[in-house]
Computed example of a mutant assay.
Amino acid sequence: MNAEGLIEVVLPGKVEPEGLEIRHGAVPAAGPGQVVIRMEATGVSFAEQQMRRGRYYDQPAFPFVPGYDVVGTVLATGEGVDPDLVGTRVAALLKVGGWASHVRVDAADVVEVPDGVGAAQAETLVVNGITAWQMLHRKARVRAGQTVLVHGANGGVGSVLVQLARAAGAKVIGTASARHHDALRERGVTPVDYRDEDIAARVRELAPGGVDAVFDHVGGRGLVDSWRLLAPGGTLVSYGSASTRDNEGSKQWPVLELLGRVWLWNALPNRRRAYFFNVWAGRALARNRFRARLRADLTQVFTALQRGDVTARIAAQLPLGRAAEALRLAESGTVVGKVVLTP
């Protein structure tokens, strides 16, 4: 196995994409309870864009290998792991470490990818699909006939969210720039131009009684508008602070501010609820429950893909050695879908 050789992309510090480094080494061995995955696809998500700026609130110390998720084939198993897993295509949520030709993970953290689903297809739906599914069904508990507002409806998570919400029978209003509106309409989404329109006023026209759920990755001052747009009984799910990506100063403060707002709103006597969604919540305290929930939810997402409820939107596929170009492309805002890295 070690004859293959390990290739990984290293983020050495706060650098431009071209500052990423390529490192070579020995393929890791699978320890007890672990598997080694030969990477077939990994992705460029918003998290990596924040991490290279030092802005992701709980990123590790530099240097490290980024890569929030990975899809690949099990190359080796460690002690206590079923050896029949070798040759199986699996997906894993990592937070860091995915931008490598070989990735070692706990066997309990991998989810089998269904037959007929390609590696790049599956990759687009790992972190984005898990996030969208859990926010929609575990937090907001959206039901048929309800109306939801999705900010960044053309983005990585947003594009999956609108499709899952439509599959659940909800009416969807989505914010995006005008060039994405035709694509959103084709998916049954009512688009709102976040650049040229008064978003709150336009949403109130479309949903005079308020919306049943808002999914907000932007944070900042606009989060107050998101809260105010809720109907009685509605739910706000905040899951990011994209508006602060290029800010200086503390990377923790934007998240602490969001948590403070959520706590305050929930303390008020009203019939609305607010959540700050973190896909890793509960992992430290209830690891087995976290894993079971992740496995069940990602399986649901893959099933939705097979049914045609969700499509895999691949913006571009580039080899691992061109990670800098892939990151630059993802940050450009000119592509639709996920930028995928391959071996």
Rank of each mutant, 00 (worst) to 15 (best):
T88E: 13
T303G: 11
L223S: 12
P208R: 04
R187Y: 04
P63D: 12
R104T: 03
E21Y: 05
N278G: 09
R52T: 05
L320F: 06
Q49T: 14
R291N: 09
V148N: 01
Y239P: 01
W265Y: 15
R89F: 00
R291T: 05
V36P: 00
I173D: 01
Q121E: 15
S45G: 14
G321L: 14
R187A: 08
R55L: 09
A122Y: 02
H24V: 08
N247I: 03
R221P: 14
T342D: 04
R202L: 04
G156E: 00
V35E: 01
W133A: 05
A61S: 15
D196L: 11
P32N: 08
F302R: 06
D58W: 06
A296F: 10
N247Y: 13
H217M: 12
G188F: 09
V335D: 04
G308D: 08
H137Q: 12
F302P: 01
V150C: 09
D193R: 12
K95R: 15
Y194M: 10
Q121D: 15
G145L: 13
V70W: 00
V224D: 15
V336P: 00
L259K: 14
V90R: 01
A176P: 03
D193V: 09
G80M: 11
F64M: 03
W263H: 14
P63V: 10
A76Q: 14
V335Q: 08
L259H: 12
Y68I: 00
A324T: 09
R141E: 15
N128T: 14
L161S: 07
W133H: 15
A183C: 01
A231K: 04
T73I: 15
I173Y: 02
I7F: 13
A76F: 05
Y275S: 08
A284K: 13
G129A: 04
A107S: 11
V105P: 01
I37S: 03
A323Q: 03
L294S: 06
W99D: 04
L298I: 03
A140W: 05
V218F: 13
V117W: 02
M39H: 07
A119E: 01
A100R: 04
E248I: 09
G116I: 10
D69P: 00
D216S: 12
F290G: 03
G220M: 11
D69Q: 06
G174T: 10
G333V: 10
R272Y: 06
L298Q: 06
V117C: 05
P28M: 04
A92M: 09
